[in-house]
């Protein structure tokens, strides 16, 4: 029960902090779930995140798996509700108010001001997941070279042409199976 309350607290807060999308809370989420509460290991977190990128739908639904790991199926439901409900309620309420301040120049200031912060948070998210998934000191230099290589290749291919990212993630799995066994 205590675990469920901790999950509820952590993910409700993350929900309300997810400015500019779910990736923005990735570094904070990693810190909370791995270092503070120990619900998942750093490697589990990276794996769960990447599984989430393969499933359809909103890409942060993977938070449910962290809840599952921490407290079973109840944990999963608690986390999904905690992560999606607060921001949804806020959005529901705010969509009433939004039109009222349609012409306020501050709206623009908020959007412009928050944009680089969101990017900074996403970059911190790359680092939070990458420090186990791309460069892990516990692995050999060769292993890390291959994981970094896969990541950079995916980024480069996506810049070069439009391709469904889920396919590239699967291709990463095949490459991993082939090179990293």
């Amino acid at each position: 029960m205590k675990e469920l309350v901790s999950l509820l607290n952590a993910f409700c807060l993350l929900s309300l902090l997810a400015v500019g999308g779910g990736s923005a809370v990735l570094p904070q989420m990693e810190h909370e779930t791995v270092s503070i509460h120990g619900w998942v290991s750093a490697a589990d977190f990276a794996t769960i995140y990447s599984l989430g990128q393969m499933a359809p739908g909103p890409n942060m639904t993977m938070v449910g798996l962290i809840g599952f790991k921490a407290a079973g199926i109840t944990g999963m439901l608690v986390v999904l509700l905690a992560f999606y409900l607060p921001s949804s309620v806020l959005t529901y309420a705010a969509s009433h108010l939004w039109d009222a301040c349609k012409n306020s120049p501050w709206r623009d200031a908020v959007q412009k001001g928050m944009a680089p912060i969101t990017i900074g948070l996403m970059l911190a998210g790359v680092y939070a997941v990458g420090k186990t998934a791309s460069y892990n000191p516990a692995h050999s230099l060769e292993f890390n070279g291959i994981t970094c290589g896969i990541g950079l290749a995916v980024a480069a291919i996506l810049f070069a042409r439009r391709i469904n990212p889920a396919l590239l993630i699967l291709a990463g799995g095949v490459a991993g199976w082939f090179f990293l066994r």
Partner: peptide, 21 residues
């Protein structure tokens, strides 16, 4: 091994999205 590759690819995806946005 496959999951290590999948996780590595997911980092690349997030990096690309971040750089693009």
């Amino acid at each position: 091994a496959a999951l290590a590759g999948i996780a590595a690819a997911a980092v690349g995806l997030l990096l690309q999205v971040t750089l693009k946005i």
